[in-house]
Design a protein around this nucleic acid. Structure first.
Lengths: 177, 177
DNA sequence: GGGCACATGTAAGCTGTTACATGATTAA
DNA sequence: TTAATCATGTAACAGCTTACATGTGCCC
């Protein structure tokens, strides 16, 4: 029931937008959702089997032999709604960069500069990626109904990346001797 | 070796600032480090035992019967340095709020408003907490040597919280019908 | 003498990751 | 015909959480 609740939410949510095969769910999660949500592939198929057994999704034969395309059922849509209404479980923070900055005095000269440079570069790359995703989703036929939610999600990523870049610019002078 | 690398980093890092008992490490991790780093208490004592066996930390009897205060050894300081120089392992993102926003079309009326309100409130609470932590660390005798690193860490939290508040203000109008 | 903060530790169980195994279809 | 992509699945393992077990010292 509640054990794989978050994985179920992601899978049911994806299927609420349109029917997909397990492989396609996996792809959707790595490309679009991948920037704020992660699923281990080893969990998707067991999760699909469980959801199907519970009547929350239904399979139709896919184009290829052996492949199955899943659709969300009315019961599944109700369950998704319930799952989305539950408060988001707090993610235990494990920020490796901040851990290194916090103990930064133990870092040899130059290492802090490298670390901060990498962080800023990564944030800039993320910004570019978001721009690409934005262009991609705008072409999606579901954009009319889901677009504003997708845009808001990407916007969170952009503001976060910009905050990171601003942070590096602000603290670098005092941390790099 | 590499299995508990991140926990070792946090523990060695804490002991590099000053000698602590297991209990005090636990406290330090929940209060100051807690906002960007999490350790399960069940891991601290096994980790301490391992580090002691490897000669990276050394125990002296604490004030109370049975308690032990740990100090970092020279070997431990070298190991900490190596650990800090390793790139921070990427944390798989699992942002429950963004997952809910992304699938926001499935949310009933009003739920999105509540969700965003909660997010903004939580971010404001975090800002207030950071102000408290700032006041606390400024009084620490180690502030002179470590202060700028601690300040930079807190600053990252502040900028992140501010970005969250700005995000809610920006996207709320388009998401709450 | 009761409650709280200090202090240390373990063990069961759950979750999630990794690596592997298998095979169909399509493009070069 | 070979490589890449599509497609499904499992099983072993690593890591983490939770709950429990135990005891000291201080203050009211």
């Amino acid at each position: 029931m509640a054990r794989r609740a978050q994985t179920s939410t992601a899978v049911l949510g994806a299927l609420a937008i349109g029917p997909l095969t397990g492989y396609e769910i996996r792809q959707a999660i790595t490309t679009v959702l991948g920037h704020f949500w992660h699923e281990s592939f080893g969990q998707i198929y067991p999760c699909l089997a469980e959801l199907e057994a519970d009547g929350l999704i239904a399979a139709t034969p896919g184009e290829r032999a052996g492949s199955r395309r899943f659709e969300i059922t009315d019961a599944g849509r109700g369950r998704l709604r319930d799952l989305l209404l539950e408060p988001a479980p707090p993610q235990a923070p494990r920020n490796g960069v901040l851990l290194r900055v916090f103990f930064g005095r133990e870092l040899p000269d130059g290492a802090m500069t490298d670390l901060l440079d990498d962080v800023a570069t990564e944030a800039r790359t993320r910004l570019a990626t978001y721009a690409g995703i934005r262009a991609g989703i705008a072409a999606d036929p579901e954009y009319a109904t889901h677009g504003r939610f997708w845009e808001a999600t990407i916007r969170a990523g952009e503001l976060s990346a910009q905050a990171t870049i601003a942070w590096v610019a602000e603290v670098a002078p005092s941390l790099t001797t």
